[in-house]
Amino acid sequence: MARWEPNAPERLAQAALDLFAERGYENTTVIDIAQRAGLGKTTFFRHFQDKREVLFGRGTTNDLLAEAIAAAPPTAGPLEAVAHALDAAGRQVFTSARREFTVRRQAVIAANPELQEREALKNLTLIASMAEALERRGVPELTARVAAELGALASSIAYERWSRTGDGDDFGEIARRALDDVRAATPLC
Rank of each mutant, 00 (worst) to 15 (best):
L134D: 00
F94G: 05
S163V: 08
G172C: 07
F44D: 01
A144D: 01
P140D: 04
V139I: 13
N27S: 14
R118T: 14
A148D: 06
V108C: 08
W162G: 00
N123W: 14
L12A: 01
A120V: 07
A15G: 02
L121D: 14
L79C: 06
F48R: 07
T43F: 00
S96P: 11
G138D: 07
L64M: 08
E135N: 07
D180I: 10
A81E: 03
G59Q: 02
Q49M: 10
A110K: 11
K51Q: 03
A8N: 08
E67K: 14
A184S: 11
L55M: 06
A185W: 08
A147N: 00
F171T: 06
G24V: 01
L153M: 12
T143D: 14
I69G: 01
A66H: 03
H84I: 03
A107N: 09
A76E: 07
I31C: 06
T143I: 13
I109A: 04
L134Q: 02
S155G: 15
L55K: 04
H84V: 04
A147D: 02
A13M: 10
G90M: 01
A76Y: 10
L188N: 08
V30K: 01
G138M: 07
A13G: 10
L55H: 05
V54Y: 01
A81C: 04
S96W: 14
E141S: 12
D63H: 13
L65I: 11
E5P: 03
A13Q: 15
